[in-house]
Design a binder for these strands. Structure first.
Length: 417
DNA sequence: TGACGTCAAGATCCG
DNA sequence: CGGATCTTGACGTCA
């Protein structure tokens, strides 16, 4: 059982992908972007290894225009060294990666040109996983596509087009229920005919349930039968509804108590759980730390990343977390995350924000130049008199943290949450 | 024709 | 000039 996150790592240095617009794209620029993105991917993989995260979705942005203008470029050979080094790190760590072409990759379209592009896109995604030298347990997740007014015909067309895919693509492809069209029962229908493993998505199922109402666990049990030898562990997607956004929108963070209810309902089934959530790796670590004892040291390291972000919201909870972590023989993960989640529900007030910013400034007090000191004082004054935002103040602190390479701050969540 | 989702690039505004 | 804050891009379907 592994818990993981998708595509982007929050507060991980050097992990940002780069891209360009189609009109600016040329071979030279694309090659430099790919080089950068592979280095960004490696940073994320390194971060995952260090932090014990064993499930990760690689962003489709790795190769900009990978299924169109870069499709025929020899990036696979040009960067074979980088690919195999990263692939080795993934393999050695026992990490499982995946890719997920988005909602615009429509294999069952009634438009042949769209289908051809979808096939090229799937080729591209498989080529990345192949280049990393990873076996077919490292999957690509796809939705069935559009309904075009007739779902059962749409499913038939999906299967017909699936059968045209290369074996190397077919063997990696798994299918997922979506939030508007194809519910889990529809996806299983396609799965049974074409023998494709099914990823059960919990939020999509809640938002777009099948007619024959089965429980979440029932669907997960049925989906389990679609994962065959060589496919690796069954995978599910788990996310929570963002209460202030429209139906199906992912939450900012995973509320661990709701997650634990879901997790315990699985009653020990060996399933990989991909979280889909805005705060990405932060929620993944939270869930990992809550389902089993990772040692007090892991909680301390995580607390070190949270602390100024919590201080900014609630000095009271900041103190309480410090206190509960003093007992080195305990593992107070649930209490700590309860307090953290409570703090994030507290709106930021000016007094606390200023207090936290001053704590952060403390790292530079003695090394900052006169000019930097003045600038900080000026931004602080302006924030206090409502002439400038907290974001400006924090962005400035981040710039200074980068200049002096203050790793402790740069690896923390203060600048990001 | 716009909304949907995503996230960085690109454009524009401001001091 | 540099930073902050919008707007656009690239994809396909559906109302």
């Amino acid at each position: 059982m592994s818990i993981g996150y998708a595509c982007v790592a929050v507060a991980v240095n050097g992990s940002e992908m780069k891209s360009c617009t189609l009109k600016n794209a040329n071979e030279e620029l694309l090659l430099s972007l790919i080089k950068h993105n592979l280095s960004a991917l490696e940073s994320v993989i390194d971060y995952n290894v260090v932090n014990g995260i064993k499930l990760f979705r690689i962003s489709s942005d790795l190769i900009p225009f990978g299924s169109s203008i870069a499709a025929d470029m020899p990036w696979h050979e040009s960067f074979s060294g980088e690919f195999s080094r990263i692939g080795q790190k993934i393999f050695k760590a026992g990490m499982r990666v995946s890719m997920h072409p988005g909602q615009y990759t429509v294999l069952n379209s009634i438009n042949i040109a769209v289908v051809e592009r979808a096939i090229k896109d799937l080729d591209y995604h498989a080529k990345v996983l192949d280049a990393l030298g990873l076996d077919v347990e490292h999957k690509m997740v796809l939705h069935l596509g559009g309904a075009y007014g007739n779902k059962s015909l749409a499913i038939k067309r999906f299967i017909a087009h699936y059968l045209q895919l290369k074996p190397a693509v077919q063997s990696r492809l798994v299918i997922e229920n979506d939030d508007t069209m194809f519910n889990i029962n529809d996806v299983l229908e396609a799965s049974v005919i074409a023998d494709i493993p099914v990823v059960f998505d919990s939020l999509h199922n809640a938002v777009n349930p099948a007619d024959n109402a089965a429980s979440e666990l029932d669907w997960i049990k049925i989906c389990a039968t679609t994962w065959k030898m060589g496919d690796g562990l069954q995978k599910v997607h788990y996310s929570q509804q963002n209460p202030s956004k429209k139906t199906g929108a992912h939450s900012e963070t995973i509320e661990f108590e709701k997650f634990l209810e879901f997790y315990h309902r699985l009653s020990g089934r060996d399933i990989d759980i991909m979280l889909e959530v805005k705060d990405k790796n932060i929620s993944a670590l939270k869930c990992i730390n809550c389902v089993s004892n990772q040692g007090i040291g892991t909680l301390e390291r995580e607390w070190a990343r949270y602390k100024y972000s919590i201080l900014e919201r609630s000095p009271a909870e900041y103190e309480r977390i410090r206190t509960i972590l003093t007992d080195k023989n305990s593992y107070p993960a649930l209490v700590m995350y309860r307090l953290i989640e409570d703090a994030y529900r507290t709106p930021i007030n000016k007094g606390n924000a200023v207090n936290a910013a001053q704590h952060v400034w403390g790292y530079f007090k003695n090394k900052a130049t006169k000019f930097e000191k003045n600038r900080f004082d000026q931004l602080m004054k302006k924030y206090l008199s409502d002439d400038s935002s907290l974001t400006s103040l924090k962005n400035y602190l981040r710039r200074i943290a980068r200049k002096y390479n203050e790793r402790y701050l740069l690896n923390g969540y203060y600048f990001y949450l």
